[in-house]
Structures are given as C-alpha cells and as structure tokens.
Design a protein around this nucleic acid. Sequence first.
RNA 1: AACUCCGUGGUGUAACGGUAACACAGCGGAUUUUGGUUCCGUUAUUCAAGGUUCGAAUCCUUGCGGGGUUGCCA
Length: 560
Amino acid sequence: MPDTPAIPTLEPRDFIREIVLEDLKSGKHDHVVTRFPPEPNGYLHIGHAKAFCLDFGLALEVPHSRCHLRMDDTNPVKEDVEYVESIQEDVRWMGFEWGQHFYYASDYYEQLYGYAVELIEKGLAYVDELTADQMREYRGNLTEPGKESPFRNRSVAENLTLFARMRAGEFGEGEAVLRAKIDMAHPNLIMRDPTLYRVLKAHHHRTGDDWCIYPMYDFAHPLSDAIEGITHSLCSLEFENHRPLYDWFVNHCSVPAKPRQIEFARLNLTYTVMSKRKLQQLVAEKLVDGWDDPRMPTLSGLRRRGYTPAAIRKFIETIGLTKFNSLTDVALLEYAIRNDLNASAPRVMAVLDPVKVVITSYPEHQVEEMEALINPEDPSLGTRIVPFSRELYIERDDFMENAPKNYFRLTVGQEVRLRYGYWIKCQEVIKDPSGQIVELRCTHDPATRGGENPPDGRKVKGTIHWVSAAHAIPSEVRLYDRLFSVEQVGDDFTSLLNPESLKIIPNALLEPSLAMAQPGDRVQFERIGYFCADTKLSKPGKPVFNRTVALKDPWAKAKG
RNA sequence: AACUCCGUGGUGUAACGGUAACACAGCGGAUUUUGGUUCCGUUAUUCAAGGUUCGAAUCCUUGCGGGGUUGCCA
C-alpha cells in the first residue's frame, strides 16, 4: 500500500479552509488551483511540509482541483538542479503528486518580460540608473518618505529602448534596474517603486545564458500564479507586507486570472532551526553530516532518521494553522512518530551496553528456539524465533547492586523475567580488578519457559531484554538526540549545538533476526526505542541502526 | 510607538455574541511478558483597562506585549 494521505473532504478546520469553503459556496470558484513554489536553493524541511501539505491537501479535498509544483527560480546565482531534484523527491515521499503540473518560473521569462513592457507602456515602470546605494538613500526609511529618482519621469519610448538594451546586455550588473512607478511616499516601503528586473550576468540552470536580466520575486511570483490560474496563493506571514504589491501587479497587467494571496504562520520547532540560511550554514561548516543528517529538520534528514510521512502529516494536522507566530514543542512531533511506529514497527531485542550473564543451571550446549511476538499490538502478525542459550548479554543498566526498592530489574536475590526467555535470579557478581562487573552468574526456573508465569503463582516486577551471546550480531547503533541544547535557538546558533546529539555505539548486540535488515527498515528495540536501518551506512549482513526516537522512560525520571 | 499583522493553560490549537474545549506535556492511579502501549482521573487558560450588550475570548476604544517591513534575496 503506498504511503499516501487519505482523501478527506473539505472542512473548516482552519481559517484558510474557511475562506476556500466560502469561495466555493459563493460561487467565486467551483474548484481550486494551488501551488507550492519553493526556490531551488536548499533542501526542504518540515516547515515546508506544513506549507505543501496545505497546498496539496486542499487540492485533494476539493473536487476537480489541482496543486502545481513550481520552482521559483528567479535568482540563478543561488539555485541548483541538485535542489530541484531533492525537492521533487521529498514532496513525493510525503505522498503528494503534481501530475503534469510541474513548472518553473523560468518557463515564464518571456511572458514576464512582456508584462514588464506592458507596465512601461502604461507609464507604470521605468528604467532607473541610480546605484544600489543611491536607491537605498532615496527610499527613505520607516518614519520618513522617500524621494523620487531623477530617472523616474523618462518617456515611455525612452524606457522601452533602455529596457530592451538591458535585455541585450548593454548594462553591467548594478548599472540599471527596471522599477515599478508606484509611490515613493507610501507607508509600506515595499511599495516605494520596487525593483522588477535587475541585471545578473549569471548562468541559469535551465535558461543558460539566454538572459542577463532576471525578474524579482515580487514581480515574478504573482504573475506566475496568475499565468497558471492559481485561485489561492498560500504563503507564510513574512509576505503579508507584499500583498498590496502582489495585488498591484495582478491588477495592472493583462493576466488571465486574479489569484488571492493568503498568509499563515510558518512552523517553528523547539531545539532546532528552521531557516534555509541556517541549515545551509550547518551543512557548509560541516557541523552536521549533510542536508540529510538524521539530526536535521529537513525531510531528507527526518526520512533517514526513520520518520514516516504519515507521522509527519499527522503532526502537521495536529498543529493547525493560524496567523500568529508560535514555537511548537518538538514533543508533539515525537508523539506522532511514536504513535505511528507503535502500531507498525516489528519488535526486536537489542543490547546497547552489554554485560554477560551465565545461566549456571542451564545445559552447556543447549539452544532453544523461543517464540516471540512480532508486535504485541497486533498478535495476528505472528511470531519470530529468538535463540536462547546458557550465555547471554543483558543491558548493563538492567542490573544493579544495592538497588533501591523501586528498582524492578535484576539485583542479587531479585528475580526478573527475561522477555520470551526464562525467569532468572542472580547468584553471584563477578568483577575485574578495577571493580567493573564483567559477569553475572544466574540460575533459571525451567517452569517459566517463554517467560511465562510459573504454576506456583509467583510474581515478578521486572522484565528485561537480552540476546544470546553465541548468536548475537554486532552492529553499529547511532543514538541521535536534539541538535541544539536550548529550546529556542537564536542567531548565535552554532554555539548552541547539543554536544550529545550523536552518540555512536560501535558494538551493540542484536538478535539474529536483524542480520539481513534492509536499509530503511524500521523496528522497535524493545524497552529502548524505535530504530531505522540507515539508508547510507547499513548493508544486509552488516546493519547500522539510527535511533528515531526513544521510548518514554519513566524510570529515567524516577531515578532522577 | 511609521505602517502593518497578531495576542486563549507550560506547548500547539478550538470555541464565529450564549456553560472556555481538544491534543501534547505534567501529576496520580489501574492494566501489562516492553517502567512501552492502553485505560481512568487530575493540575492549569482568554495581555490589561474601559465601553456596547440581558450576556463578550468573540464587537468598539485605549494601552501593553510580540512579529514583519528600510535587498538589485525569496
């Protein structure tokens, strides 16, 4: 079964769906066309997923609707095909399809040029030869109006010629721009004669050297939306100030449609950063192991970490959609993945920090094949075989000398259950000269085979996991934790990295059923957490597991 | 304090003039061959002050607090 979202009908779950519902009811639209327009200058992160789950989700919810995937590639100096490909892969992985509707803003360069000419002809745009510094000066500031450029009142004919010469490459970078003629005293600085085109003698990843002038986002974006017949153009809050300009272009150019821009708050998560610039920097400075480092909030990172698209979608549904800035507790995300994996992940036993146990009462060369549930949440999934023998390994944490009364695991004289094994009692602790425990000598009760309760009605408080020493497979296990050590990560973020965000355990011991784990396989190490065979480092026969998320651990809290 | 958007438990959200609710987190308990899961219970909320109204989280005014905006980035 492909991992795609269920198709719900449109409900007023948030203010945007309310607007769409209203537009449908009023007859303004009888279907919707949305778009997800990333700039291909970085990898997509979970914040982008919030946006495109809305864009694609809406198209799924309203009959006869569609969502376009459009590369907003108007700045060739920052963009790259590597990103175009990763974006498509990540959107698909999340379960969405755009069909034939894959576009580039660069598809529209010629049309966009035509709209610019139209504005010039209407006397609404002019070629300005102020330098960047002068333009800044002329713009004024938050409290003072700007003043008009001396080039502002050139004739239409002159502007037409100049703009054609810009296109022809007769101006160097910074020597001329095309600006809209709006209002240099507008209280919204965005409206003080914004730049439409700048000269960039750069090679574009698709149009090559065809162009040396490139449209600005504010100009290209609304018109691209209009060209594609977008009905609802959904974007994040920082574009709120740009909406008047968006509407200005759509109203002054002869476009086939008038899309409506609606803004919503972007996602912020505790203990991580969610800006492309910062993520870019983490990668460039090698503070992480690439865009798909499992600690990254990128979709490729979350995928490698073991997150499922369904859990991410569920999370996004849970956090809702509003117009106010917030900081979402990453615990909500962790809940979503635990909840998903609890239902679906096969259970296995793995010992991360092994200490040897010898069952002195158990025959030397005997091996029993124990039956263990694949997933107790769904016994119909059947069982797997786990070999049991005289020499085992258990978790070092699962034994304690002089344990407090609320310690339920193995101590001298306290019986515990070996899951799917036997009940054992520790008789003797063997230490090396440094005092380190090297072996626990135990006896077992043959009446508890499979870990079952004995007929005498005896009870046991603790159940611990184990692996058979002779059958265990050594494996590298990577324990990932939050990337940053503070909830709210500011601008000096590189100094706030969590030094414990990755702990590599070179020699964990796994039960033999895991020997041939395929990269990407997700399992639960019982009593520890959910793990995923790494897609880059893991090979059948030589698995490497990443911790996706730990199981809740009340004992860790109880002992302080 | 120029303009603009926005303020609901610890966190994310709902309530659309009529008993402030849900999820997560926390706490307590039950069940449990995972100290997991599940189940039950529980703590805690409308930024402030005025106004309109029989009745305000919701409408109005003012104040306070937060975000965005002075790129030839998106």
